[in-house]
Amino acid sequence: VASEYLEDVSKKAKSGLMFVKLVNPCSGEGAIYLFTICLQQLFEVKVFKEKHHSCFINQSVQSRGLVHFATPVDPLFLLLHYLMKADKKGKFQPLDQVVVDNVFPNCILLLKLPELEKVLHHVTEEKEIDNKKHYKYSEKKTLKWLEEKSTSFFSGDQVSTDKEEDYILYAHGLISDYIPKELSNDLSKYLKLPEPSASLPNPPSKKIRFRGCSCRETHTV
């Protein structure tokens, strides 16, 4: 389904929805995302595949093995991929010179998200040069931001019945799906998490409340 939209992005833009291929910030490979023109929001598209599966479409039952889910994703995760690459040059740069990708040219859409500039301070140092803002990746700020993300996944009443460390381990695992392996390791050290071992308990099996939603699997980052 997504490949059909990718053939002609401009036509799909007129409908207010664009399926685009952007970099997966964890693997560095391509992944399908949904960009809404009207809401100016980014969604990741996940595919649930099952051999024996049917679903209702209007008034009929369709036998299909694929279900596509679109869930909101924080664009800063994708931006981190480019900021960390640009940081190797060790200098401040305009954002439009940082977010450049010949393989995934639609990455420029990230810069059109209206709230992006307001949250860049979470992961960058900022400097104004010739009346234009320049940015540089900040590992210190990024780790602090990711720490706040980790603790936002669970509420205080849950910590009283389960070890806080178990929840942070679980949250770290979720966030690691959206950041490079190197940054995931740095975050683990920053959170002072124990080294993985067979003796560690499994993540909490009870339902966890993610941003006000009680569920087992569904979550947004």
Rank of each mutant, 00 (worst) to 15 (best):
V61C: 11
D166R: 11
V61A: 06
P75H: 01
D87K: 12
Y82I: 00
Q40M: 14
K85H: 13
F48Q: 15
G173Y: 04
E50C: 11
T161V: 08
F92N: 10
E50H: 12
G173L: 07
V20L: 07
V47K: 11
W145P: 00
F210T: 00
L113K: 04
Y135R: 01
L95A: 04
D162K: 13
F92V: 06
H122C: 08
H121T: 04
P203G: 01
P25M: 03
Q93P: 09
L66V: 13
V99H: 03
Y135F: 10
Q62S: 14
H172Q: 12
K118N: 09
Q41H: 14
D166V: 10
K112H: 09
P203Y: 07
M18L: 08
I179A: 01
K133N: 07
L76R: 05
K133L: 11
I32T: 09
I32C: 12
L76E: 04
F77L: 11
S15R: 05
A13T: 07
T218R: 08
G173V: 03
L183D: 04
R64V: 09
S160M: 09
Y5K: 08
V23C: 09
N131R: 14
N106Q: 15
L42G: 03
T36A: 13
L183C: 07
Q41Y: 14
C26F: 05
L22R: 06
L66H: 09
R216V: 04
K46C: 12
R211Y: 06
N202A: 15
P72E: 10
Q62I: 15
S60G: 11
G156D: 13
L143H: 00
N202Y: 15
C26R: 11
S150L: 14
D101W: 04
Y33T: 07
K51T: 13
N106R: 14
P105G: 05
K207H: 08
L183N: 03
E50P: 04
I57P: 13
H121M: 03
H53N: 10
M84I: 14
I168A: 03
D74P: 00
K88L: 14
Y167C: 05
H172W: 15
S205L: 13
I168V: 15
P75C: 04
L183M: 09
D177I: 06
G65K: 13
D74K: 00
K91F: 08
K132W: 06
L187D: 02
P105I: 01
G173P: 01
T218W: 03
E117Y: 07
H52E: 12
E7Q: 14
S188A: 11
V23H: 02
I57T: 12
V221H: 10
T71R: 12
L116N: 03
L80K: 00
Y5Q: 07
V20C: 00
H53M: 12
L66P: 02
E148R: 11
S60V: 14
K91T: 15
E182A: 12
C26P: 01
K144E: 13
E29K: 14
D166A: 08
Y82L: 05
K140D: 10
L200F: 03
E195H: 10
L110E: 04
R211I: 00
L79Y: 01
L191K: 06
I32R: 02
P194W: 02
F210Y: 12
I168F: 00
H121I: 03
S199P: 10
I168L: 13
P25T: 00
K14I: 06
V103F: 03
Y178D: 06
